[in-house]
Design a protein around this nucleic acid. Structure first.
Lengths: 226, 226
DNA sequence: CGGTATCCCCGTCGATACTG
DNA sequence: CAGTATCGACGGGGATACCG
C-alpha cells in the first residue's frame, strides 16, 4: 500500500512512511529505547522478521533511523533527530486511542507483550537496591505464556520466559484481562489487590510498595471517553 | 491491511483506523470543513468512489463521523467529538512532514489539488467586498488542468474548472512547481512576483494586496530541516 | 450527484526453510 | 542472533460500468 497519494501536502508525504502497516508500532519501540532487531520484535511480536527488516530499511531510507554495526552481530537501529521528533506524533495518537478507540477483545490480550510493556514502566528508584526478581503468573493464559520473570538491577530490567535461576522476590498472580485493564488505567489497582484479583506473595516491602513502582501505561491517566 | 495488531496499546488501536490507506487525508478534509462526498473527493482526488465510501463507512463505524441525510441526495458526513479531536493528530503529522518528509516530484504536483487547497486559504476579509473572481493559469500544466477559477463572495469560495461567466478580476499566471514551492513556504512570494515567475494582471488593488490575502499552506511557516 | 456492483490484477504479507 | 530467500495465497483496491 501507501505511496503516491498524488499530492504534496505534508500530511500526505508523512503518511507514505507513517501509515505503512506496523510502522507506528516500530517507531514506538524505537522511541521507547529499543535499538536491536529482536528487542523491537518483542514489542511488535506479530510482525514477521522479513517484514520488520523491510520496514527498518524504509525507515532508514526516510531518514528516521540510521544503522550502526554492532559487535555481537546485527546492527543497532538508532533514531535520527527526525525519528526522535516522531514522539510528537505518537503522543497524540496514543492519547486519541486511549480516549476513543474500540474496546479490546481477547485477541488483543497478549501476555508477553504486556510484560514487555511493563519492563519499561518500573520505577527502579522505588525498588530495593541490588537485584529484584519478579515473577508474573497469568492464571488464564495458555501454558507457554503463563509465566514471565523480570530481573531488575542496575537501572536495567530484563524479561525472561524461563526461570532465571535467581530466587523470586515477588510473585504477582492475576488474569491477563484484569491486569490489562489496570494497566490501561480503566480500573484502580488497590481494590484488585484487596479483593484478591491480584495476588502478591513474597517480600513484604515489595508487596507494600508495589503500587508505587508499577508505573502503568503512559496513557493510563488519560480518561476514556466512549 | 491493518487490523489486529494483536496488542491493546492505544497507538495500535488507533492505528487500525488511522493508518488505513487514504484515511488521514480524508480526515484532513473533514476537519478542513468538507461534509459532502464530492467535496471530500476534490481534496483526495486520487481515491476511487468505491474506496472513499468504504473508508467513510469505517470512520462511521469507528465513531469518527456520523451521517446525516441531505436534501439534494447523498449524506452530510459530520465529525463527532472524537473526529474533531483528530486535529491534534493531524497537526503534528503535518509539522513533521513539513520538516522531514521527502522532496516532492512531478507526480505530486496536482494543479487541481493546489487550487482546492488555495480555496480554503484566502483571507476574504482582506479582499474587496462583493464578488471577486480569480483566474489561475498554470503555464506548464496539461490543457485540461491549465485554468481554474475561484469565485469569492459572502465568506464563501467556489472552485470552478470552467469559465464562470463572470468577469475575471485578477489573473494569476505561474508554473505549478513555483507556485507549489511558494505555497509550501519554501520560497518567498514577493521576489517571484518581481521577477515575473508569477504574473498578475487585473485590478490594481487586488494585485497589490495579493500577498496579504493569499494565506499559503497551514504549514508554510514550519521550517524544512532536511 | 452520490453512490453500487463486478471483475480481476498485482502487491503485500505470512510461512517456511536456510545462512553467516 | 539477525537476518535472507523463496513461494504461494489472499485481498485490497483500481477500473469500468451501471443506477436511483
Amino acid at each position: 500500500m501507501t505511496s503516491d497519494f498524488g499530492q504534496f501536502c505534508p500530511i500526505a508525504l508523512a503518511s507514505e512512511v507513517l501509515t505503512q502497516k506496523w510502522m507506528l508500532l516500530i517507531i514506538r519501540e524505537l522511541n521507547a529505547g529499543s535499538t536491536r532487531f529482536n528487542d523491537i520484535r518483542r514489542g511488535v511480536p506479530r510482525i514477521s522478521a522479513t517484514l520488520l527488516k523491510q520496514r527498518l530499511n524504509q525507515l532508514e531510507h526516510a531518514g528516521v533511523i540510521i544503522r550502526q554495526p554492532h559487535d555481537n552481530g546485527g546492527d543497532d537501529y538508532l533514531l535520527t533527530e527526525a525519528g526522535r521528533e516522531l514522539k510528537s506524533v505518537l503522543a497524540p495518537i496514543g492519547e486519541w486511542g486511549q480516549r476513543w478507540a474500540r474496546e479490546i477483545d481477547d485477541g488483543d490480550l497478549d501476555p508477553g507483550w504486556l510484560v514487555w510493556a511493563m519492563h519499561r514502566r518500573l520505577d527502579l528508584s522505588k525498588m530495593p537496591a541490588g537485584r529484584t526478581v519478579l515473577e508474573i503468573a497469568f492464571t488464564d493464559a495458555p501454558k507457554d505464556q503463563r509465566f514471565f520473570w523480570l530481573v531488575c538491577e542496575n537501572n536495567n530490567v530484563e524479561v525472561c520466559v524461563k526461570p532465571t535461576g535467581f530466587d523470586v522476590d515477588l510473585r504477582v498472580s492475576t488474569s491477563v484481562r484484569i491486569f490489562a485493564e489496570i494497566w490501561r488505567g480503566l480500573r484502580p489497582l488497590q481494590p484488585e489487590i484487596a479483593n484478591g484479583a491480584i495476588r502478591l506473595e513474597g517480600d513484604t516491602n515489595l508487596m507494600r510498595d508495589f503500587p508505587g513502582w508499577l508505573l502503568l501505561s503512559v496513557f493510563a491517566k488519560t480518561k476514556q471517553q466512549r
